[in-house]
């Protein structure tokens, strides 16, 4: 093998190794850092293990918002079938209301309460988070062309 060919071979090998390593890293990082979206029904049906981060979306339960002793807030998220109790330490978004759509990020604790690290509400009057729309459609609470 001529030195030039050998050099090319090494170069190609290095690219293959680097590419493979890169792909493995990306897949590994994706596997560890993706969060699934779950509907309140999924949670009620015990499809989610405690301690695993996920997102849940639905409507804030009517008359469910309760201020705790400290700065925390309790409320429920529902899609009409399942109900998830949520606890959140933080400032709720300005558009947070009972009966409105929200998406919360967090994990269930041992008692089945969803400890939210982040709560997103809609950002204007017309907007409904699409995950919430999907969850409501699945539970049959969504009527086409009519925002609840």
């Amino acid at each position: 093998m001529s030195p030039k060919k050998r050099r090319r071979l090494w170069f190609a090998a290095a690219i293959v190794v680097a590419g493979g390593l890169g792909a493995w890293l990306v897949i590994w990082a994706l596997g560890n850092n993706t969060m699934f979206f779950r509907s309140p029904t999924d949670v009620a049906n015990k499809l989610v293990q405690p301690g695993i981060a996920f997102r849940v979306g639905g409507l804030v339960g009517e008359k469910s918002v309760r201020q705790g002793a400290g700065a925390e807030v309790h409320f429920t998220v529902t899609d009409g079938k399942g109900v998830v109790p949520v606890e959140f330490h933080g400032v709720l978004p300005a558009l947070f209301r009972e009966g409105q759509g929200v998406v919360a990020t967090g994990a269930l604790d041992a008692r089945g309460t969803f400890m939210a690290s982040d709560v997103l509400a809609k950002h204007d009057e017309k907007y409904m988070p699409p995950e919430v729309v999907d969850a409501l459609k699945k539970s049959g609470r969504w009527k086409e062309g009519e925002a609840p």
Partner: peptide
Amino acid sequence: GRKITVGPPFFALL
């Protein structure tokens, strides 16, 4: 049809 989000740690890590 599965809805997931890729969290900020993925980007921070790589």
